[in-house]
Design a protein around this nucleic acid. Structure first.
Lengths: 190, 190, 190, 190
DNA sequence: AATGAATGAGGGTTCATTCAT
DNA sequence: TATGAATGAACCCTCATTCAT
């Protein structure tokens, strides 16, 4: 009949929560460092230090630097796709509103997650292989509707413009950027 | 077979020529290796070995790996710009022919220098910082005519489509790719 | 299903029994792993995992990996000596039956405890220091009767042949092996 | 017609000789350290330090610690076999002289190369896998003449007695040790 | 100009061990 | 008693770079 002083299964939940917190700190530190310096210039020690844990702790949570990087990039991509599903898909059949919605989502994403965008696609990212996987993923989603060549072109354009915007929003009027994206997306479709 | 003639200025020219030959072999080896494996996965020893010289010799010709990489990338860019100057500039004032000419130059360049394109922009390139410098350079040339946003978008599109084409030409009909590039370039201009 | 009865001394015995069970599981897991991979290639985590307990639990039962290893080896040795006391000692004064009995015990031990034999003396054991302690122990028991040199020789021969037999019994007819051991043991004694 | 001031190909021979000297120093240092502490307790840094070179230099000469260890052990074995070929083989057909000659070679080898013997087979060697390969090699040479079981037994006996002798020659009269080895080798052969 | 042995900092990774819960 | 997250020392190994020849 032994009733624990603490409630329920708190004994097992506490370390679980501590683990999650450590993991979160590692992710946060990594995100900042990757965005600042690029994958190659950040060591697992740096990340551990940024998270305030010992070097070895890193490896209790991630196999290696690349796994963490990949995880962060693909999570960002997943969120981007969620936003597109929500905002763009309902507008199928209305090219102009859809194009505008898509441009809005992309720009908004860059504004909300500049750090992640710079991390994955920015200069010095040296992460081309992961960033490229992410872009390939986007291309694959567009190919059925646009064909291979056009899908490649659109994704290239978006990646570049979104990165540019994430690096220094305000270098051009927001509306101009939006309109550029919309024009390009609609071109050749009419 | 090299018999020292001792006539004219050959005394000074011979080593000079030998030096240039060594340098050329280093460049050729580096180009091949960078394209195959990316900047990060190639060591200065690898390049020296590919060129058939000793490890230390590399440093008699280049400050380091990055300098050589940068040199190769910017040379390629210079040639690309030369081709554009020759083929596109004379068509100023005729948007459609100019757009087609530009698309032709870009695709032709990818076909002639696939190795360099893959090296600078391909997946796993890890050379984003140099590749990005090269693209920034292209953006700067376009900005006066197209505005910042559109220049970014066009360059992103070209970089992506040209890399894709260099990696596997023939994945789509050449004419389709060309037409896609032309449409996007002309969009919003009318 | 464990309902605390609170009768007799069960209050103190229950945890005691649980502790012993955990310890036994750790020993069993270690024995298997050591035999498979050798001391060096097995971590304390591996052993804990094989026993189905947490990593830290290992250290509540053993000071470290080496202590556990040593314990297992010397226990095996103790059993071997028990068997020899039972089967060989009564035959003192009858060299041939004694030699045969000893060979039988050694071979039988290898058959019954192949795992332990491989663990202590097998290839890749890396445990020479513990295995050697065990063998030194056997040498010490033989020295009074056989002299140092002969004791060393006999123990070396036994260790090697027993390990070989444990690794693949049946590579030679059992009777041949027995006879070889007997001949060698009796040689020079007549 | 350029005649080098130094003779012949001295320019190419000098570094070659330096390399060989470094390699020799690494081998010598490793031999001493392995004999003292065993494979596992010696690091590549230790060996480099003992040889008076930088840590990385070790890897210019050996793939890793195990390769060096194996190289040293098998070289010793090769020399031992050379000695046996010279001293024992000519006596085929004369069991007693051959047995004595073999015992002499084994003991003499232990005396001349105590360091190597301790390294390969001594306590704490942790090198069972390499030492065992070496012993397997000896077993294979004996099997045709002696059968598997007897070959195993003889090799086990030799390894143990030779190691014991290498560790402390003089613990028993040399002649006693020799005679013990001879008796055991001849037993059952008559 | 070329060689190539050597350097040594520094990154990745493991794992025995501790300790708060 | 048991847990398991965390520690951090220590190892292995690579590679850009130097320098005596």
């Amino acid at each position: 009949m032994s009733v624990s002083v603490r409630g329920g299964d708190s004994r097992s939940r506490a370390p679980e929560r501590a683990r999650a917190a450590t993991r979160a700190r590692l992710r946060a530190g990594a995100r900042r460092l990757f965005a600042e310096r690029g994958l190659h210039a950040v060591t697992s020690h740096d990340i551990a230090e940024a998270a305030g844990v010992a070097a070895g702790t890193f490896y209790l949570h991630f196999r290696d630097k690349h796994e963490l990087f990949r995880e962060l990039v693909f999570e960002a991509l997943a969120e981007l796709e969620r936003r597109i599903d929500v905002s763009v898909h309902p507008l199928i059949g209305q090219p102009e509103p859809a194009a505008r919605a898509r441009a809005e989502v992309l720009l908004g994403f860059a504004e909300d997650h500049g750090e992640l965008v710079r991390m994955a696609f920015g200069r010095g990212s040296e992460a081309a292989s992961v960033g490229a996987d992410a872009l390939d993923h986007m291309v694959a989603r567009l190919e059925p509707d646009h064909g291979a060549a056009r899908a490649q072109a659109l994704v290239g354009m978006w990646a570049r413009i979104v990165t540019w915007w994430a690096e220094s929003p305000g270098r051009a009027p927001r509306e101009t950027v939006l309109q550029t994206m919309i024009d390009l997306q609609l071109s050749g479709v009419r």
